[in-house]
Design a protein around this nucleic acid. Structure first.
Length: 259
RNA sequence: UCCACAGUGGCGCGUAC
């Protein structure tokens, strides 16, 4: 059953929900994991009606399936239904709390999010903090975001990335770059998303040399392979700075399909 | 008791509008 479920997941999470359904029907046995996998498969494909049908048809439900349904509504912007799931579910854990928190944040309902975070949630974890940091930044309160960041007892790469992106999006380039330098000396491990943010920042300011250093360092020092966004920034900054031939060369040699 | 398969966070792509 675990092997069948693993197959199911492979199809369902890669956009082949119809093949997943075939496997689901062909499986000798199905358990709650199989059902929940199908539920998320339909949710990922954007078919909310089918998602709900699976949820209703499940022979048994647990916290994971309730949360998956809650998340499916939240991601389609159906906050009322998501909240309803949340209210109706038999138990709650950090996942279900964070889903509803992220839903308010995503909708730009900062006050609901803040209220939930500060007074209603029984506790908060790193993910809740990251959502709130992003919510502050999204609402333009970069100072509040920074304060949250500095107060954090623990920080992971995603949280650093959220702070970095918040600075970058609000035009606080110097702080963004300082933060990135701090990461690179070993305080935290930057990932591809961090490099994307920094590259687009360098690009935006027309800093060809800095862009190039960043682009090279990402691959040489950190072992990441450049993706479409990274190439896009490099090509952009080169071309805009008059290095049209170099930009063209890069497009020709890059292992990415140009869009 | 622990270990395999399903649910939550940052940039972007895609999808939708």
């Amino acid at each position: 059953i675990v092997t069948w479920n693993a197959m199911l997941t492979a199809y369902a999470q890669n956009g082949h929900v119809d093949q997943a359904k075939s496997i689901f029907d062909a499986m000798p046995h199905r358990n709650i994991v199989s059902w929940t996998t199908m539920l998320t498969g339909y949710a990922l494909s954007g078919n909310l009606a089918r998602t709900k049908m699976v949820f209703d048809a499940m022979p048994e439900k647990n916290l994971v399936s309730w949360t998956a349904m809650e998340d499916a509504y939240a991601r389609r912007g159906h906050i009322e239904e998501a909240k309803h799931m949340f209210d109706e579910m038999p138990q709650r854990d950090m996942f279900s709390w964070n889903v509803i928190l992220a839903a308010y944040s995503e909708l730009g309902d900062f006050h609901q999010a803040k209220d939930l975070f500060e007074t209603m949630m029984p506790q908060q974890d790193l993910i809740s903090w990251t959502v709130m940091l992003a919510a502050h930044a999204q609402g333009g309160d970069i100072t509040g975001a920074k304060k949250l960041f500095e107060q954090m007892p623990e920080r992971d790469t995603v949280l650093w990335g959220a702070m970095l992106a918040s600075f970058a999006i609000k035009g606080r380039s110097v702080e963004a770059m300082d933060l990135f330098e701090e990461m690179k000396v070993g305080v935290a491990q930057p990932d591809e998303a961090c490099f994307s943010v920094v590259l687009s920042l360098c690009c935006h300011h027309g800093k060809v040399y800095a862009s190039r250093c960043c682009f090279v360092s990402m691959q040489m020092d950190f072992g990441f392979s450049a993706g479409k966004q990274h190439y896009c920034s490099m090509v952009d900054v080169l071309a805009r700075s008059g290095y049209v031939a170099e930009a063209e060369e890069l497009v020709l040699v890059m292992p990415v399909v140009p869009d």
